[in-house]
C-alpha cells in the first residue's frame, strides 16, 4: 500500500509518502496533533470520499482541499468498488458511537457486511474474532451497557471479522493483500488487554498488513516490526523501533528525557524521566 498526501491551507500532513506491505506490523507514533490519525485516514481512502462541501469553500471557512493518492498494489484506492475495498481494508476509528442498543454479537457481525458467507462460516469467523478480542461470554451483552474498554474490544473484533474470511474460511475468498488500520486501539484497555490486543494484531500481521496509531512506545518496541515517527505533519523517521527510539530522537520529538534499558531476553525498554512543571516542551 502506498500513500502520498499533501493538504493545502491547513497542512495537516505535508508531502508524506508511506509504503506498507502485507505481513508488516507498522506503528505510527508522534505527539498529539502531529497528523497520525490523518495519515491513517489518508491510508483508508477517507479523504477521497469526504471532500469539503463546496459551500464552505466558497465562504472560505476553514476549507480544506486534499491532494494525494492512496494506492493498493497497482490500483488507486478511490477507483476500487466500495465492497472490494472493504474486503481489503478494515478501519478501526478512535471512537464509535451507536444510537441503538445492538448486542455485542450483532455489532461484530456487521464486519461481515462485504462478504457473502454461509451461516456456518459466518458463525466460525465471528467466534474466532470474539476469542481474539477476549469477548467470549459477552455475545448477548448490550453494547450500550458495556464499559469503554469493552466497547473498544467489540469494535476490534468487528474489524478483525472484516479481514478474516480469506485466511480462516476459504482461500478461494482471497482478494489480494489486506490491511488492518487501527487508530489508538489500546487507549481504553487495561494492561492485560493491551497486550492481548497487540498479540492478536501481530498474529494477523502474518498475512495482513497491520498499521496501528499508538502512544505507548514500549508497546511499539515490543510488537511493531516497523515504526513511522510523525511530527508536525511530517514523517520524521522510519525504521525498526529499536533503531528509531533513541534518547536523542525522543527528546527531540516529545521533549521527554528517556533512558534505554535492557529488559528480559535483552529486549530494549524505555524509561522516562518525569518532566519539571515549569519546563517548556522542547520544540
Amino acid at each position: 500500500m502506498v500513500v502520498k498526501t499533501r493538504y493545502s491551507e491547513k497542512r495537516l500532513l505535508d508531502k508524506v509518502s508511506v509504503t506498507v506491505h502485507p505481513n508488516e506490523f507498522v506503528a505510527i507514533v508522534g505527539p498529539n496533533g502531529a497528523g497520525k490519525s490523518t495519515l491513517l485516514k489518508a491510508m483508508s481512502g477517507e479523504f477521497m470520499e469526504y471532500t469539503v462541501p463546496r459551500r464552505s469553500l466558497r465562504r472560505g471557512v476553514r476549507g480544506m482541499t486534499s491532494a494525494g493518492v492512496a494506492a493498493l498494489g497497482d490500483r488507486v484506492l478511490s477507483e476500487l468498488p466500495a465492497e472490494d475495498r472493504a474486503k481489503r481494508i478494515a478501519v478501526l476509528p478512535q471512537a464509535s458511537t451507536l444510537p441503538f442498543d445492538y448486542t455485542v454479537e450483532e455489532v461484530v457481525r456487521l464486519g461481515l457486511f462485504p462478504w457473502r458467507l454461509s451461516v456456518k462460516d459466518a458463525n466460525e469467523v465471528v467466534r474466532q474474532a470474539l476469542i481474539s478480542a477476549d469477548l467470549l461470554g459477552f455475545e448477548q451483552r448490550h453494547y450500550l451497557s458495556l464499559s469503554g474498554g469493552e466497547r473498544q474490544r467489540t469494535h476490534f473484533a468487528r474489524v478483525l471479522v472484516q479481514v478474516m474470511p480469506p485466511a480462516l474460511v476459504n482461500p478461494a475468498f482471497s482478494v489480494g493483500s489486506q490491511y488492518l488500520l487501527l487508530d489508538e486501539p489500546t487507549s481504553a484497555l487495561d494492561l492485560s488487554h493491551q497486550h492481548a490486543l497487540m498479540q492478536a494484531a501481530s498474529q494477523h500481521a502474518r498475512h495482513v498488513g497491520v498499521v496501528v496509531v499508538m502512544h505507548d512506545l514500549n508497546l511499539a518496541l515490543q510488537y511493531a516490526s516497523r515504526c513511522i515517527l510523525v511530527n508536525r505533519g511530517q514523517v520524521v523517521e522510519q525504521g525498526t523501533p529499536t533503531d528509531i527510539f533513541t534518547p536523542d530522537c525522543i527528546a527531540d520529538v516529545f521533549g521527554v528525557k528517556a533512558h534505554r534499558v535492557s529488559g528480559k531476553a535483552g529486549q530494549p525498554q524505555l524509561l522516562f524521566e518525569p518532566l519539571m512543571m515549569d519546563r517548556n516542551r522542547k520544540r
Binding site: E46, Y102, F113, P114
Partner: peptide, 21 residues
Amino acid sequence: AKALDALALGEVEASHLGVNV
C-alpha cells in the same frame, strides 16, 4: 436493512464496511 445496520456505526464506518453511503 443490512446497510442501515452498518450505517448505525456512522457514515465513515459504514463506508469502510463497503456501504455506498
